[in-house]
Design a binder for these strands. Structure first.
Lengths: 337, 337
DNA sequence: GACCGATCCTAAAACGATTTAGTTCACCAC
DNA sequence: GTGGTGAACTAAATCGTTTTAGGATCGGTC
C-alpha cells in the first residue's frame, strides 16, 4: 500500500535515509526510531519486486521435475515428491527464499525456450532439477556456459561435470542382494522400473553385482513402470515361469502389487515367497505383511540439495557431492522361515 | 545477458520502439523485422522482474498448505498434495503463470508478518490456501480488506463470506452410509481423522446423517490422525468393543491400517468385516483386498481452484463455488458376500 | 579566522521494462 | 504557401527500491 517514498516523506527525511534506517545501516538513532515508527504506522512492507530489480536477485529458486509424457505419473510413484519438497522447503524457508515448483516433460516443444528463460529472465537465482531418465539434457551446457547455479538430484547424464546430489541406488540394492544371499535364497527375481530410468538402472546394477559376489547366479528381471499395476502383472509373469524364493521390487508400490498377486494366487508372503521393496514409502506399514524396504532419507536429501544450491548461489563452492548412504528397513516381508 | 536497450541500440532504434516491436504493437514492418532479428541474434530474453515492476503484476500465484505442528505429516496423508498440485500446475502453466509453494504451520509466530508480505510485497498476484483445521484464520479479513485475490480449498471458517472451492465430504460419506445400509450392515464403526479437521468433521456428519436416514442407529466413532498407524490401533480398540459388520475410514491410509489389524487378528476382509476408505489414493489398488473408496477427482479440483483464482485476479468474477460431486469407487473390500 | 574531521543526511543514478504524450516528416489539398 | 493528416518514431516518466558520491553543519584546534 505505502511506499518507501511515502514513509520517508511522512517521517520528514529522504528516501535514502529511510532505506538506510530500515536496513539497519548507519543513521542517527533518533532518526531511525522516527522512520521505524512511521513505517510501522503506515503499515509499510517493502516492495519485493523493486528490491529484486535493484539487487538483481530474486531470492527464489525453482524445483523442476522432469518427466516424460509416457511416464507422467512416475513423479509421485518414485516417492520423491513429497519428501524431497519437505526437505527443500525447510531450508528455503529458513533462508528467506521462495520455492517455485515446475514439472516439465522432456517432450515439451517449448522446453528450450523455457530453459532460456530460466537462465536469462532473472526471476530465478538457481534451480534444482530432478531428472528421471538417462538421456542427454541439453540444458546442462546452457547452465554451465552462463554460470547459472543449478544442482541435479541424481546425475542424469554421464561425462559432463555436473553439480549433483545422488542417492546410492546401487548400494541400496546391494543391501537387498546381501539380505537374500544371507537367507539362502537361490531363485530370485527382480521387478524393475522402466529400463531407461536412472534409479531403475542403478538398482538393477547394484542388485546384480550383489548377487554375483554372493555366488547367486539365477536372476529373472522384468520391467514395469513403478506403478502398483505393473508390480501385479509382472509378478504374474514371473510366477508363471517357475518356482521362486524371493522378489526384489524397485519401489514399494510395485512391491504392493506383487504381494497382491501372490496372495490372490494362493502364495503366502513371506512364507512361500519373500518380497522387498524400495523407498520406504508410508505404505510399507500398511501392507500385509509390512514391507521390508530400503530407505534413503529423502527429506534429508532435499535439505542437502537446497543447501548446496544456496551455497552455490552465494559463491561459496562448486558442489559435487554424494548423498546419504541407504539403509535397510527390515519389516515382515523378507524372512521365509 | 542483453537488455532491451542494447537490442534497441544495435537495431538502431529507441528502446520504446524496440519494446513496441517485440510486443506486437503498431510499428513499421521493416523496423519490426529488424528488431526481431536483432533480438534473436543477441539472444534477448526480457527481464521478468523489470516487467513485474512496471506492470505491478508478478504472474505468480502461491499454493499454501496450512498445517499444525502436531499434524505436520497430514499434508501428504490427506492425498491432497500431489493431485492438487498436478491440477493447479496444468492451468498455471498454460496461462504463463508461475507457482510458488509454501507450507506453514498455524503456530508459526511469523505467520502474521508472512501474510502482510503476501498482501503487500507485490510478489504474488493471488493465493490458493489449503487449510486443514476448523479455526479462525485471521488472514481472511486481511485479504478481504485489501481485496487481495485468494481462493480457499474447503472453507476453513464459517460465517465470513469466503471464496472457496469445496469437496462435498458429507455427500461422499453418505454414499458409504447408503452402501452399508443397502448391504444390510447393522453394526458399524467409523475411524475418523482428528476431531477438528475440516474433512473429518464433514465426513462424520454425512456418515451419521446417511445412517440415520437409513434407520441404522448403532455407530462407534474413533478418532485417529489419518496415518496408517492410527488406523491400525483404532481398529484394535473397536474390535475389542464387540462384533462388527463394517468400518468406514476417513481416508485410505487408515483403511489400510485397519485392514492390517483385521487380517493380523484373524478376521477376513470383506468376509468378516467390510472396510471402505476415502480419497481414492493410488494405494487402494495395492491393498489386499482392493479398497472400496470415495473419489473426489482432486486433480480436476486443482484445476478449478487455479481457474477460479485466475478469474478473480483478472477481475472476471467473485467466486463462491462448490466442487465436483463425489463418487463411490467399488472394489473388493466392501461386500461381505 | 582558516582548516580539519566527524556526523548526518540527501540528490541522483541505477536496475529493465512499458507507455504516454509528443515530435518529426512527408505528402496532399486548396 | 499554408494547413491538415497520418505514419513512424522517440524522449521522458514511471514502477520502488538501494547505493554512491558528495553537501551541510557543527565543534574543535592552532
Amino acid at each position: 500500500m505505502s511506499t518507501l517514498k511515502e514513509v520517508a516523506h511522512v517521517a520528514g527525511v529522504s528516501a535514502a535515509t529511510a532505506s538506510l534506517a530500515l536496513n539497519g545501516r548507519k543513521v542517527n538513532e533518533a532518526t531511525r526510531q522516527r522512520v521505524l515508527r512511521t513505517a510501522r504506522h503506515l503499515n509499510y512492507v517493502p516492495n519485493r519486486v523493486g528490491r529484486m530489480l535493484k539487487a538483481s536477485k530474486s531470492q527464489t529458486i525453482s524445483l523442476l521435475f522432469m518427466t516424460s509424457s509416457r511416464h507422467a505419473d512416475i513423479v509421485r510413484h518414485t516417492a520423491l515428491f513429497y519428501y524431497l519438497i519437505e526437505g527443500i522447503l525447510g531450508v528455503v524457508d529458513e533462508c528467506k527464499y521462495s520455492l517455485r515448483l515446475e514439472v516439465k516433460s522432456h517432450e515439451d516443444p517449448g522446453l528450450a525456450a523455457y530453459f532460456e528463460n530460466v537462465v536469462h529472465d532473472k526471476s530465478l537465482d538457481g534451480i534444482i532439477i530432478v531428472p528421471q531418465f538417462v538421456r542427454h539434457y541439453p540444458f546442462l551446457e546452457l547452465f554451465q556456459a552462463n554460470r547459472f547455479p543449478y544442482v541435479m538430484f541424481r546425475p542424469g547424464r554421464f561425462g559432463l561435470e555436473t553439480n549433483y546430489v545422488d542417492i546410492e541406488n546401487a548400494a541400496g540394492a546391494r543391501l537387498v542382494a546381501d539380505l537374500f544371499a544371507s537367507l539362502g535364497y537361490q531363485r530370485i527375481a527382480m521387478i524393475n522400473g522402466p529400463e531407461s530410468h536412472v534409479d531403475a538402472i542403478e538398482r538393477e546394477r547394484g542388485f546384480r553385482e550383489g548377487l554375483a559376489s554372493a555366488g547367486v547366479a539365477d536372476l529373472v528381471v522384468k520391467y514395469g513402470d513403478f506403478m502398483i499395476h505393473t508390480g501385479f502383472s509382472m509378478m504374474g509373469e514371473i510366477a508363471r515361469e517357475g518356482p521362486l524364493d524371493a522378489v526384489f521390487c524397485a519401489n514399494d508400490y510395485m512391491a504392493a502389487g506383487a504381494i497382491k498377486f501372490l496372495s490372490e494366487s494362493g502364495r503366502r508372503v513371506p512364507h512361500d515367497v519373500a518380497v522387498v521393496g524400495y523407498d520406504n514409502n508410508d505404505i510399507c506399514e500398511g501392507i500385509v505383511p509390512s514391507l521390508t524396504t530400503v530407505d534413503h532419507r529423502l527429506e534429508e536429501l532435499g535439505r542437502m540439495l537446497a543447501q548446496e544450491l544456496l551455497a552455490l548461489i552465494n559463491g561459496q563452492r562448486t558442489v559435487i557431492q554424494k548423498g546419504i548412504p541407504p539403509r535397510l528397513i527390515e519389516r515382515d516381508s523378507h524372512r521365509k522361515s
